[in-house]
Design a protein around this nucleic acid. Structure first.
Length: 341
DNA sequence: AACTCGGGGAT
DNA sequence: ATCCCAGAGTT
């Protein structure tokens, strides 16, 4: 694995050009359930704005979420921000240097802690991400869905037993080699077994079962949800509402939600203290998540000016030229960019 | 153990 | 349309 990595691994990714634990940590969080190519531009922008853990800790959460907007899994950004404040507060700016301590921070689990500790501090800690799971399931012929507890325990034991315990270089490189093999050779769809250094004694390969392992996640029906929202605009601004900190799109700004059984006019009364009329239903936006599908029904009303009076908390009139700096969910951003009358 | 949490790339 | 990606936290 290590010899293969030297000649065939990925060595040019932005977060591989440093051993700064802050940068490595940021990359690992962004890379959770997110592909490398998607992460790169977000990683660069984020570091430009927050070059170190102190600048991140000092920033308002809204600014952090704005930079995370479009990347998904926003709890990652909230946890990242909280962890930065812990490092700069309780830990007095001293970044944790062991996987055990790292795993105490919010958003850092066993695998992410191991990845940071092995890469930055040469700690012999095993990782177990999607790549490693796939490689191990195929190479050892592991049956059962890897998300199942017994299967995952078995995989962790294998990963631990394979992790080099001596030799700084081997300790550092082995987890990288596992991930690179999984990402470039032992891929989900059509693995390039002809180029794989493990193919000579890979159980799946020898049995011609590369396509069957790892066992796929059990299928589940995807429910459909409906959501009516207010699209209240003036010539140059739109009304946004901050979402609750937990749940879908936590902490991001979105269009004000019309509650079940409520009309757009009633919602405008609740939000602005004025019962507005003349809302027009815009085309429904369909957005698919991993575990449900959402139909968004936008009720649009153009106003001559921003209404005066007391606004409900969490509301903000936002100019269109400010939208780039606001944390908006990707589908809402698309909705606002879509031309209307 | 099951569920929640996004957006997009790959097929 | 479907699966899953450098998973973690909550219930």
């Amino acid at each position: 694995m290590i010899a293969w990595h030297a000649g065939n691994g990925r060595h040019d990714l932005p977060w591989q050009q440093t051993r700064d634990p802050y940068r490595v940590w940021l990359s690992e969080i962004m890379l959770q359930q997110t592909q490398v190519e998607t992460v790169i531009p977000y990683y660069q922008r984020f570091l430009q704005r927050f070059p170190d853990v102190a600048s991140l800790a000092a920033a308002p959460l809204d600014d952090v979420l704005a930079l995370w907007a479009g990347l998904g899994y926003y709890a990652r950004a909230r946890n990242l921000h909280r962890a930065a404040q812990q490092v700069c507060g309780e830990l007095a700016g001293r970044f944790p240097q062991t996987s055990l301590e790292l795993a105490e921070l919010p958003g850092i689990g066993r695998s992410t802690a191991a990845a940071i500790a092995s890469f930055c501090f040469a700690e012999p800690a095993a990782i177990l991400d999607g790549n490693v799971k796939r490689v191990l399931c195929r190479y050892f012929g592991i049956e059962g869905f890897p998300g199942e507890r017994t299967v995952e325990l078995r995989l962790w034991e294998l990963a631990e037993s394979l992790q080099p315990q001596t030799g700084e270089e081997a300790i550092r490189v082995y987890p990288q080699a596992q991930m690179d093999l999984g990402a470039t050779i032992c891929t989900r769809g059509k693995p390039a077994c002809l180029h794989c250094p493990l193919s000579v004694d890979c159980v799946a390969r020898l049995a011609g079962r590369e396509a069957d392992l790892p066992v796929a996640r059990p299928k589940k029906a995807i429910p459909l949800r409906e959501s009516d929202v207010l699209m209240l605009r003036t010539e140059d601004a739109v009304l946004l509402e901050q979402r609750p900190a937990s749940g879908i799109w936590g902490g991001l700004y979105s269009l004000p939600q019309i509650e079940a059984g409520e009309s757009a006019g009633q919602a405008s009364l609740r939000y602005l203290g004025v019962a507005l009329e003349g809302f027009v239903l815009q085309p429904v936006l369909r957005h698919s998540f991993t575990h449900f599908t959402l139909n968004i029904r936008p009720w649009r009303l153009n106003l001559p000016a921003v209404p005066q009076g007391v606004n409900a908390p969490g509301l903000r009139w936002t100019r269109f030229d400010e939208l780039a700096e606001v944390g908006l969910p990707a589908p809402i951003r698309k909705l606002l960019e879509y031309p209307t009358d």
